[in-house]
Nucleic acid binder design. Structure first.
Length: 289
DNA sequence: CGCCAGGGTCTCG
DNA sequence: CGAGACCATGGC
């Protein structure tokens, strides 16, 4: 069945064109989210929360073949003004080449708990490993979703009833205790991730860092990928190296590099960071400087 | 085998 | 505040 047939094609109510293009492969493959699968026909299957979606690239926009188009448009942030965002990219060659390579990559709006949990498991793990842990946790603790091969990510209430051993069996290692402790803290009601959204970015960052397993880097990932704080810049090993290169080899303390990133990457620093991260990871040559 | 991966936490100056 | 040790796991 061709993607363009009227029967299988559901055009988004809100065209993406006015806000710039969206590239689904770049967006889903850039290490923000870890459970989507590409089908033989090129379309992508995955869950947004507890709903199953099948989505294909359709020119500069998306064709939602299964699922609610409005939910997809919100998740893929089709309202982000991409042309305006691109215009804020710094003139540095590193930033401009990343921009040229990643046009259409959008920062997703992920469910708060799901994003928090997956990035708690992400520390000192490669992207492929994070995906493996996400799928294992979904399979072992998550609930099945109609027509989806992948289970929904388990709620914190559900995970709070898990055991550290059960989570270690999903490959989490020492991260298992952190994920379990955070699930139980949220289940106690002492912290409400949704209510935290009213806070300023610095206050929200501090609140997130109270969760076991959430330091400044993971907090910035949650700020960027779930709370839509587009100026938040997660500094992992890749971005650290890039920032040092932009400073012509001059290193510095984490606080100094964070200040430099905030000053140099601008109001959409999270976007710049994501383009730099994905471009560096996908264009690494066999020879390194 | 050694090294690295989207780090956090604790301890000690 | 800043630096170091330690924490598991898997791929290359």
């Amino acid at each position: 069945m061709p993607l363009n047939s009227p029967q299988t094609r559901a055009i988004l109510e809100t065209p993406a064109i006015p806000n710039g293009p969206v590239d689904i492969a770049l967006t889903l493959g850039s290490g923000q989210v870890f459970h989507w699968d590409q089908n033989p026909d090129g379309s992508w299957s995955g869950l947004i929360g507890r709903e199953f979606f099948r989505i294909a690239q359709d020119g500069p926009s998306l064709a939602v073949l299964h699922g609610d188009p409005a939910t997809a448009a919100h998740h893929f942030s089709l309202d982000h003004p991409l042309a305006e965002i691109e215009a804020t990219f710094p003139p540095e060659p590193l930033c401009q080449s990343a921009l040229a390579a990643c046009r259409g990559l959008r920062i997703l709006r992920q469910p708060l708990w799901e994003c928090t949990a997956t990035f708690i498991t992400s520390s000192m793990k490669q992207v492929a490993h994070i995906r493996g842990m996400s799928l294992a946790i979904r399979s072992k603790f998550g609930e099945p979703v109609e027509s989806s091969p992948v289970n929904a990510y388990p709620s914190f209430a559900s995970l709070s009833r898990a055991t550290e051993r059960g989570l270690r069996d999903c490959g989490l290692g020492y991260r298992a205790a952190n994920l379990l402790a955070t699930a139980r803290l949220l289940d106690s009601g002492k912290t409400d991730l949704g209510a935290l959204a009213a806070k300023s970015t610095p206050d929200l960052r501090n609140s997130l860092q109270q969760l076991p397993g959430v330091g400044v880097k993971v907090a910035n990932c949650i700020l960027l990928f779930a709370y839509g704080r587009l100026d938040a810049v997660p500094i992992d090993t890749w971005i650290h190296r890039i920032l040092v290169a932009m400073r012509r080899g001059r290193g510095g303390t984490p606080a100094q590099l964070a200040a430099y990133a905030r000053r140099r990457l601008g109001p959409y620093g999270g976007y710049v960071q994501q383009y730099l991260f994905h471009h560096a990871r996908t264009s690494r040559q066999k020879s390194k400087p």
